[in-house]
Nucleic acid binder design. Structure first.
Lengths: 230, 230
DNA sequence: CGCGAGCTTGACGTTGTTCAACTAGAGTGG
DNA sequence: CCACTCTAGTTGAACAACGTCAAGCTCGCG
């Protein structure tokens, strides 16, 4: 069961909302009075594809994956880390989730009632503008993702995943992947067996080392070339 | 060479902007004074992937395709018809196009300077809100597209394309496809040869008739089942 | 008439999935 | 403490899906 609590003060929240500085005090307290902090354990579902949007989500702590559930298999679209909003792109549309979100690590999520969030953003153009900007930028990521799936082969896509962990998420050539091989496969859009196989290949070729979930990139340049060539 | 003209009056424009009713007169005339109407012929490029965003586009007349140019092949993401905005999702982000747009039919495009568009939307929360809503909804389409590419096989994807023409674009079981076989293939994310092959199969199976670019859907239900089953 | 672009079909090779068998480690209950 | 089971990971081999190559066709146009 998720553990639920109420925030004391958003302005003094150690997991300060993004863009909160664009709002006046009365708006902040209105948000504060209409939000809850929920704790999720690794593996728990935060958003379920197909359900209605009732809240805006802010990931205060932890790591979650956003994925599309397909008939045959799932596709992990992106990973959200502490400080990111989740699902804003859906909040202004038809209020139905087209994707699911689940926790990769134990996570703390702030849930703000969607009505309050919409009202506040309508009253504060700067705030709305920044959200818009965020949505616009995340579109770019989607274009890249769809392009990669469409153009690149397995080795290229796995290289992308490894580089993503190294460059975007952990800012280190050595990291512990926060997911199973199966999830890595879903992130790279391939079968689990092929994900394993390609990691083994990279290992044999001296491009990475693998010990369980701990991966170290030895030959970053080669990996980047594999990523580029597809 | 594209033919360029200036609008006489946006409020009396037969190709009335969407959402224009949400703006006051002075905003409308500000837009009017900062826009141009450009004519494009079939095949001409309207937006080129990689270039900077300088204008908001409104498709007053015609039909255009929005596609991602990849190293190996292109992917047609969606088709925009008269009355649609083009590329709003990029206008609020980092101002670089991640996709190209080209005319499927002779088209008329209204170009509004991006600065004016942004200013106006900032001053008119209702307008901005509606744009936001549009972007949000088009996100749904992207999720569906990426899911289909990831999950469905060739026959399912080609069924999707045919149903799209029939249900979304022409509202008829009989229609003239506005593109070459190669473009149809790019729309369904497959090779041109396979696109042709699958159309032939459907024809042999009595699901459709094909005479050049004219296609008639005979067995809509079967096509829908193929689409669903992938 | 000849040329080229778009279209069509078959044969073949490649890529990636599926199936099956096996291993290592973690947790469980007698 | 040891069998038992369960899950995650690993590897090879068979198979299916899909792309590529090659050849030929048709139609419009100079």
């Amino acid at each position: 069961m998720p553990k639920i609590s109420r925030p004391r003060s958003c302005t003094r929240c150690p997991y300060q909302y993004k863009y909160l500085n664009l709002l006046g005090n009365e708006n902040i307290s209105s948000i504060q009075n209409n939000c809850m902090i929920i704790h999720f354990k690794r593996g728990e579902n935060i958003i379920k594809q197909g359900t209605d949007v009732t809240h805006a989500f802010y990931l205060a702590q932890g790591l979650v994956s956003l994925f599309i559930e397909g008939e045959k298999r799932n596709l992990i679209l992106k990973i959200k880390k502490a400080g990111d909003y989740i699902g804003l792109q859906t909040l202004f549309g038809d209020l139905k989730y087209r994707y699911s979100v689940s926790a990769l690590e134990d996570s703390m999520v702030c849930m703000i009632k969607s009505g309050i969030f919409l009202e506040t953003s309508k009253k504060n153009p700067d705030f709305l503008f920044e959200i818009m900007r965020g949505i616009s930028l995340s579109y770019n990521y989607m274009y890249k993702k769809i392009k990669d799936i469409n153009c690149k082969q397995l080795r290229g896509r796995m290289a992308d995943v490894l580089l993503y962990f190294s460059e975007e998420l952990y800012h280190s050539k050595s990291f512990e992947v926060p997911m199973t091989r199966k999830e890595m496969a879903q992130f790279a859009s391939m079968s689990m067996e092929n994900a394993v196989r390609i990691l083994s290949e990279y290992k044999k070729e001296g491009i990475i080392t693998v010990e369980g979930r701990k991966i170290t990139i030895l030959e970053e340049e080669i990996l980047k070339r594999i990523s580029e060539l597809g």
